[in-house]
């Protein structure tokens, strides 16, 4: 008897998508529910259309010979890309972007993975304080500490240097790597480690031959996700970089905020370089894990 009711109830709730505003009584349920679902998905569709429209606008602009008040530009060309490559400073900032990205990710993994291991496995006095300090740089927007950090970098004579740009970007990236590593370590049974120790593995062997191979998916996911975030990180780099240590986003912001600057198409062509790099990173990270973690993991 109970079993039938339950299965009936679950069958009933399965046939309509759950509406946010439920209707009293079962009669009108179906029409009401589909209405809320329709409104919800219509809103989602509008949002996605605007979002893609915004990105495609940049893409089309970068190929446009001239684009007036029409739906599509008059003609398509690759000239803007040729000009973009010849623009002094652009090649420099693409190289800088990669140098900064790779250095930050390497350092963050080097420091973050062992720390994530300890935080996942050990209980020790002051652990919650350490966790809080690790969470804050991810939760607080960079603008809250970007200026103080830049001021400190200038005070110690690093202002404008590549090292400063790397160090500054390490602040949100390292905690992010730790936050991504912790759940990966928790998935590995401590029994495996005990077994390795029973068979005589030392600390180094345990780490190199047992933990690292098991952690590779987590490390790769953390690395690529943080690389994508470093590529797009603007505020921190903006305040500390100089003309020759700018990353691509900072260069693009400079072009955009200069009213008498270069044409929109040329800037768009520069942006497409950055879009492609970011997209490749996103696609690769999708193969390894759920990248949504990188943006929302902090709040869990």
């Amino acid at each position: 008897m109970t079993a039938t009711t339950t299965s009936l109830a679950s069958a009933r709730s399965r046939d309509g998508a759950p509406g946010l505003r439920g209707a009293p009584g079962l009669r009108g349920t179906l029409s009401r529910v589909t209405l809320t679902a329709v409104i919800t998905w219509f809103a989602a569709l509008c949002f996605v259309v605007v979002l893609l429209g915004v990105f495609v606008s940049v893409l089309v602009t970068s190929f446009a010979t001239h684009w007036g008040g029409t739906w599509w530009p008059d003609g398509l060309t690759l000239d803007w890309y040729r000009q973009a490559i010849d623009t002094p400073g652009l090649a420099r900032s693409i190289v800088t972007t990669f140098e900064v990205g790779l250095a930050v990710v390497a350092l963050a993994l080097l420091f973050g993975v062992p720390a994530g291991y300890v935080l996942a496995r050990r209980q020790f006095p002051g652990k919650s304080a350490v966790m809080l300090v690790m969470l804050l740089p991810v939760i607080l927007p960079p603008m809250t500490y970007a200026v103080q950090l830049a001021a400190m970098m200038y005070r110690i004579g690093l202002g404008g240097s590549l090292l400063a740009v790397i160090l500054v970007n390490l602040v949100p990236t390292l905690p992010l790597v730790i936050l991504i590593t912790v759940p990966f370590v928790e998935q590995i049974s401590p029994d495996i480690e005990s077994a390795a120790k029973v068979f005589g593995a030392g600390h180094l062997q345990l780490f190199g031959r047992v933990l690292v191979p098991l952690l590779v998916p987590g490390v790769v996911a953390a690395g690529i996700l943080s690389l994508v975030r470093v590529l797009g990180s603007f505020e921190l780099t903006f305040f500390v970089s100089s003309a020759d240590t700018q990353t691509l986003v900072v260069t693009i912001f400079g072009k955009l905020s200069d009213p008498g600057g270069v044409s929109a198409s040329l800037t768009a062509a520069m942006t497409v370089f950055y879009m492609v790099i970011a997209l490749i990173g996103l696609a690769v990270s999708l193969r390894f894990s759920n990248p949504a973690q990188a943006f929302t993991g902090a709040a869990r």
Binding site: G53, V58, G232, V249, Y274, L282
Partner: peptide, 10 residues
């Protein structure tokens, strides 16, 4: 992923 600069540009 793209960040606010690219959104503003588009």
């Amino acid at each position: 992923t793209f960040g606010s600069i690219l959104i503003a540009q588009g």
